[in-house]
Design a protein around this nucleic acid. Sequence first.
RNA 1: GGAGAGGUGGCCGAGUGGUCGAAGGCGCCUGACUCGAAAUCAGGUGUAGGGCAACCCCCUACCGUGGGUUCGAAUCCCACCCUCUCCGCCA
Length: 425
Amino acid sequence: MLSIHFIRQNPEIVKQTIADKRVDLDLDALLALDREVVALKQQIEEMAAEVNRLSKSFGKVSKEDRPALIQRSKALGAEKKALQESLRVEEEALQAMLWRTPGIPAEDVPVGATDDDNVEIRRVGELPSFDFDIRDHVDLIELNDWGELSRVTEVSGSRTYALKGELARLEVAIHLMVLDMLAERGFGMITVPALAREDAFYGTGHFPGGREDAYHLPNDDLFLSGTAEIVLTSLHRGEILDEADLPILYAGYSPCFRREAGSAGRDVRGLMRVHQFTKVEQYVLCRDDPEESARWHGELLAGAEKVVELLELPYRVVECCTGEMGLGKHRMHDIEVWVPSAQTWRETHSCSSLHDWQARRADLRYRREDDRKVTHVHTLNNTGVATPRILVPLLENHQTEDGRVRLPEALVPYMGGKTHIGGAR
RNA sequence: GGAGAGGUGGCCGAGUGGUCGAAGGCGCCUGACUCGAAAUCAGGUGUAGGGCAACCCCCUACCGUGGGUUCGAAUCCCACCCUCUCCGCCA
């Protein structure tokens, strides 16, 4: 969310962003409402000041004069109360609009509407060439008895999965490999709950817009988060951190839940798009310094690229255009990995800079060392690795003619020295 | 789930209806002393919104959150959230 000061001072920039990001928000209505709220507040505050003055003089006036004083104060109080009710309504409406104010993208972010307007930054790795008919990941799983892909949906519904044997073990091995690599880069592992209250989802910006994509547990009024980012963002909510505490680097580890409400019929086969998955998340809180947060953005992107390189997967880095990047984001890069069965690139990592847009929502602040002023931090996040999705390109790119899968070198130690999996039956 | 205790500023902690944005201590900042430091002494030190050219000043709000009572609430009442102790249940 943007600060109201920024919006007042830069309405044209905000309007441009609303257009570029295809946000449904009437800025003129917002500004008009803001003016009303300010005027109403001033009126109420004047009344409050008068009531305070009267109350303070209460002890000083004679007994005879008190009834008049009380009467006046009561009358003012009643009037104030009526105004406060209208203020409450208007402030609520204003807040609802402020929740939908977009973060300002970096100047060089491509303007566009769909992923066709995303810009490919670079490609890394060779596309595999096979001299045999390849299998897709579902066929490989069935061939090697690595999961229950159809049976379990009878139990748990569509977009669920069960992994077995070497593949189940491989999932854990990948997590460990990535956590070790991130630890080396300074990211401390933290496990976080998938459960969170509504306000945590507002804090990241997932609500109100993404409400339909979160599972709700009405008995306890909790939601299941689709990313560790939800809880990590609210972890330091309301605190005033010391500048010396920053940056804070987390490798969040959590189960993630997504209703996939908007993706009916897409990717229903296999492990590409499921309701529950497990994710290692890179997360950064840093100083309110565009250069520093840009540097961290680079670090997070490099961390994710390192992961796909360790997995020996061909990938490309894409800079997301304004229409694709999400309400709060300042810059966003996706990593897309080659999926041979589909002959296309599929997103496995998403790297986002939010500047202070989330910090403002979640009330994440720190005290600057030089002038002792309190200001908002910057937040950034990127996938470390998400399973089972990453297994799709991993199995398919490294498959052999006999239906086994070669393991990337970096994974071998995590798999007890095995260089291949599969072929047992 | 049952019973009890409690939530106050960066931290600790006092405060049971007005003189309280809040004593005192710690921490931090500035100055004095010192070659320098420590110790000592003096002063300062919350956040947010509004007025204003202004980080001077003035007004308003905030003592877990939201309501209520009252001329007036950190203080009284209600609901909720969280923490701690004991019991129960439990991987």
